[in-house]
Design a protein around this nucleic acid. Sequence first.
DNA 1: ACACGAAACTTCGATTCCGAACAAAGATGG
DNA 2: CCATCTTTGTTCGGAATCGAAGTTTCGTGT
Lengths: 384, 384
Amino acid sequence: MAGSAGDLVRLVAKGHGRSRAELARLSGMAPSSVSLRVEELIDAGLLREDGEGASRGGRRPRQLRLHENAGVVVAVDVGTHHLRMAVLDLAGRVLLEHELPGDITEGPERVSERLLEHIRMTLRQATVEELPLLGVGMGMPGPVDPAAAKVIAPSRMPGWNEYPIGRRMSELLGVRVVVENDANLMAVGEHRYGWPDRDNLMAVKAGTGIGCGIIASGKLHRGRGAAGDISHVPVHVPEPVTCSCGHSDCLEAHASGAALRRTLRAQGIEVSSSRQLVELVNDGVPEVTTLVRNAGRLAGQVLTPLVNFFNPDVLVLGGGLSAAEPFVAAVRGAIYERCLPLATRDLEIATAVTGRDACMLGAGALVLDEVLASEWVDDTLSAR
Amino acid sequence: MAGSAGDLVRLVAKGHGRSRAELARLSGMAPSSVSLRVEELIDAGLLREDGEGASRGGRRPRQLRLHENAGVVVAVDVGTHHLRMAVLDLAGRVLLEHELPGDITEGPERVSERLLEHIRMTLRQATVEELPLLGVGMGMPGPVDPAAAKVIAPSRMPGWNEYPIGRRMSELLGVRVVVENDANLMAVGEHRYGWPDRDNLMAVKAGTGIGCGIIASGKLHRGRGAAGDISHVPVHVPEPVTCSCGHSDCLEAHASGAALRRTLRAQGIEVSSSRQLVELVNDGVPEVTTLVRNAGRLAGQVLTPLVNFFNPDVLVLGGGLSAAEPFVAAVRGAIYERCLPLATRDLEIATAVTGRDACMLGAGALVLDEVLASEWVDDTLSAR
DNA sequence: ACACGAAACTTCGATTCCGAACAAAGATGG
DNA sequence: CCATCTTTGTTCGGAATCGAAGTTTCGTGT
């Protein structure tokens, strides 16, 4: 692997390189060069020594970590009915966390205004007062063009189409802003915080909508930009329900939180959010439980060929519905029943390790990657 | 981006770096360093200058290519009813090509014996007589564990399970032997020879069986080893047919060449190979055409969610059935009908550029990658 | 307690590599 | 046809990198 200052910082940031010796092994650089570079990075305030680690049969390594005062990033999860926000240090540790209600249908101007206000307020808090803001990561519940940092052709997000949310935020805050789809971020977050050594991962986000993020060979797979879309895969159901795409047998039209709520409403049961839906399941309301279990079965039906095809190490289930045990059980059942033994033999099927924070943490991880891959490292080095 | 002698050779081999200046840009090394290294490589007989290229507004570049006398690799496509073989130079150009009938059910001992004999015979031919053999790539029509170079749990290949074909060939020939699944190789071959700039590609091989190879970010995606399996995805059909896996609605049981031949046999039409099947289609035999078109529809049905999910740049259709126009048309139709516009907008659906050679060329490309990534380059450099 | 090996750094001379300036060769445009 | 700009490739001194040997510090076995 290549060898420059940035590479070392990134290795430390991802937790793979925790001592000079380890960095030398991973980066391919000579131990002497690593030592020199690390010294510089410590002098520049980017790294810091952090006690000694466990011996592996010889001298104990002097552990390295990113200096917590080097800077912070802000991670935002824009949901359909909430705004979640966190401030992370360069190592991806959460310093502050914060949720406020929101309504994405209010449009991008109002939402971004509220967001900015809260980001500024949060950054004034004591814990992070003096630390420079290095970047912002945002997750959006719809298709995103990350290069343009825009949402494109979303459903349920009036006014957001092509709105340059990334550029706007970037101008007002003066830092880089990366925008990504929420399911993709869930995949990034779970890969980083939950399954760092499993480099092929699928993360299904079953909330108001249904999406899927893909990690292939350790990197987010975007395809031509729309990869991971499973919402309009046809499923086998008795009663057709018209979907926004014009078909009537889409997974999303039958198994998403929005679809379930619609069905319940027709039965006279009013539910306002996925969370409340799950509460009803946990309270043992039979109609709701049946419905949720069936949604899981449908999702499993769709995921089965995808698991055979992609053959991941881990399948992560996240989003609101994943908090309902029957949903998860049904997905598991469908997959084990119909996937090839070769595909399920070593497959882990798990709910999101980071729970409701998955998308937000993924946004943080993504922007951290960008920051640490940028010129910022070298600039900081040469500045001191 | 790293910079050593091997990297330069690989860039030249892949056709991306064709002059010193281009190599400098792509490798990230300084132009001066590239010049020095290239000089060494030319002295060692690995590279050679090849006239001048077109000017881009300044001095004309002195083009570089791999020296054709540096060595050769052998690529083998082991089919169910044939053995195809080629000798390639380091740039992946075919020097000799060769097909002989074969029957994979004769078992690994007899097949590998015949193969060895033919490889040795071919290598004695005038064109490649003096050139060192650097490696062998083999494609097998079943699941492969590339690390162990074995076929694992195949259907229709009695005697091959766990047989160490790679090690055996390697011992007898004295060179490295890489073994891979044929659909994966088709993907590699098509990516290299047909779509070098499209780094997300799916290649479907519809022959006696049905398989799929995946190129993600320019590299073969293996998942946990079984990625690309689409043969046992359930399809929607009126009449169940028992599959080797125990289910009755597998794609392979209804749309593979073997399945079609079985159906035709029940109708009193005896067909011995996929090629003959295609001939009947081209002769306009209606029963056969209908059957093949339906197989294409089923394959398309299965591919639709996978295209949405993986969102490739290119979908390549190869294998025997892809020579039948109705099959290809049906796949195309199914995908355009049911995939998301976002996924099909820039999607290319094409039959294999390299036709029947795809797997074989893929085997060559794969072993070339291995050879050029090995110590061989550095050894050759320091030897002279 | 002591010797020994093993791992984590450090030191320092030799080597490699970079990068800025330069030379070569050609396109472009009056 | 000549001046100017581009691109390619080379030269050469200075700087960064390597790597082999050395130092430090620990586990292990006796």
